[in-house]
Amino acid sequence: MIGGMSSTIVIGDGPAGLSAALFLAKNDHHVTVYGGDETAMHWAHLHNYLGVPDTGGSAFQAVARKQVTDMGADMVEETVTAVRVDGDRFAVSTEGTGADASADYLIIAGGKTATSLAESLGIEGGPNGVDTDRDGRTGVDRVYVVGRLAKPNRSQAIISAGAGASAALDILSREAGDDVHDWDSPPKD
């Protein structure tokens, strides 16, 4: 594992957000995922997700959420209502408790208020989504947008998961000061 002490808030608990959270948590970063398990995946059926047998979206979500929490990420079942820059960190407020939390990085991966949250940070979007680079980086340093918000017309679970993983690897590389490769080796007999 790649050691790290940074923290990331992930807004959205569909494939993009959960994939980013999994990579970061696996590599010892503190990750908090906000979402109410209301992703569009519950209305999907996966036939083309590499390595996953034909499965329903709700079953996929259950496995993915468990995988992320088992790896150590915190899952908060609340809707983020506001994001803001707080010094050199990003702070969020939630609907349920109104509680504030902050982190070094912010990944916006969906949710009911995703577009307005991005816009509140000065990140503009259009009919083709929010303008990001291939790793999900936006024009705001340390803010990533992945998934349906970045590619509304090309939204697929496997594409979104890859985008989340790419954003996470970018954060890991940035923290390490060098390119990071997250290779896993099979256990030795």
Rank of each mutant, 00 (worst) to 15 (best):
A20N: 01
L22N: 01
L22I: 01
F23R: 02
F23I: 03
L24A: 03
K26D: 02
D28I: 09
H30R: 15
T32Q: 08
V33K: 00
G35C: 04
G36N: 10
G36W: 08
E38N: 12
T39L: 03
A40T: 15
M41A: 14
M41E: 10
M41C: 14
H42P: 06
H42G: 13
A44H: 09
A44Q: 09
A44W: 07
L46G: 06
H47D: 09
N48M: 11
V52D: 06
D54K: 13
T55A: 08
T55R: 06
G56Q: 06
G57H: 04
G57T: 02
G57K: 04
S58D: 10
S58Q: 12
A59F: 11
F60D: 02
Q61A: 15
Q61W: 11
A62W: 08
A62E: 13
A64P: 09
R65E: 06
R65C: 07
V68I: 08
T69M: 03
T69I: 06
D70T: 08
D70R: 07
M71K: 15
G72C: 04
G72S: 05
A73E: 00
A73V: 00
A73C: 02
M75G: 08
M75A: 12
M75R: 11
E77D: 15
E78C: 07
V80H: 07
A82L: 14
V83K: 01
V83R: 05
R84D: 11
G87M: 08
G87P: 04
D88T: 12
R89C: 03
V92P: 07
V92K: 06
S93E: 15
T94S: 12
